[in-house]
Write a protein that binds this DNA or RNA. Structure first.
Lengths: 172, 172
DNA sequence: TATTGTTATACTCTATAACTATA
DNA sequence: TATAGTTATAGAGTATAACAATA
């Protein structure tokens, strides 16, 4: 448990991180922006999956996932085959072309990081990676377990955040 | 200097960090989105400054800064007084209202982090903060010192990135 | 009736380019 | 002629809501 000042510093770094993200984004090929790359990376990482699963991994609304997936499918980097078990669903699979693109992207981003982080030790890189992974997990946990285990301040609790990855359908 | 696999993991975490950013963004008041908050935080942090300086700190184009600043100025959170030394410039200053808003935002975000990171030690929070600061610095350095100290691969060097924070003016 | 996925629309953040006003 | 800042326009990413097809 840290103090107020620590948290303020951390939030400031969150905000400043945008610059790093933009810098990385600038090296992406224009055909494959960051959002598309994220789709490919996750499918490579976790294997074939359905839209809903991918949405969960991306932690964005399924409508957003649908757009990204359409983009990469149009370019032949993934294929969408109907799920025989549930014909509403589609199974997403990386194509050989997609895998080749990923290899190329990986080499390119690693080369960039090797330049930028040339004075970082292997341990430091690993440490940052681990802490960022844990950060993400800490935020995920809350979403899964409920946002207010113990309201730290009196007053009305903030509205509970949706924990699905899709827009709630209006019952017609 | 780290290995390829380390860098791949790190890039993956960069991508996943978007989810954290969005979660934080969801708690911002709709009148003061993340971009506006960044402006206020930097002016509080570094004191009064000109647009160009703020652009540099935000690491975005000055046109973007101009938009954000207009937004917060319209709401009375900062004031823009003409610089007597250079009448093209404007000096940005936080107003009391702006400072009050910042206090409120700070309390709110710290409360959120305290919840999310309740099982993090003070040292861990400090470590993540320090590593993210160093990361940002490593990327900044490159922009300042030139992108290719020693081209690791033969072939044409990638186009040098602009190091100003504004769109290059076309000479009329 | 509920769920999976798609599409239409709107909003935020960003960059490029053209413009104004001062230097 | 060059610089500080503004504005217009365009593109990426996201969320909400309405919709189609299937369960």
């Amino acid at each position: 448990m840290a103090e107020q000042a620590r948290y303020e510093e951390l939030i400031r770094q969150f905000s400043a991180f945008g610059a790093v993200k933009r810098e990385v984004g600038r090296m992406m090929p224009s055909e494959c922006p960051a959002g598309s790359a994220a789709v490919l990376i996750l499918i490579e990482r976790h294997g074939e999956m359905r839209m809903s699963k991918l949405s969960e991994l991306l932690a964005v609304d399924m409508s957003v996932t649908s757009r990204h997936v359409a983009h990469v499918a149009e370019r032949g980097w993934i294929e969408r085959s109907p799920d025989p078990a549930d014909r509403r669903s589609r199974i997403l699979r990386l194509t050989p072309t997609g895998r080749a693109l990923l290899d190329q992207l990986s080499r390119r981003t690693c080369r960039m990081l090797a330049e930028r982080l040339s004075d970082w030790s292997d341990e430091e890189v690993a440490q940052l990676t681990a802490l960022m992974a844990r950060l993400r997990a800490s935020f995920d946990d809350i979403r899964a377990h409920g946002p207010e285990p113990r309201p730290p301040a009196p007053g009305p609790a903030p509205p509970v955040l949706e924990q699905t990855t899709r827009t709630p359908a209006t019952t017609t």
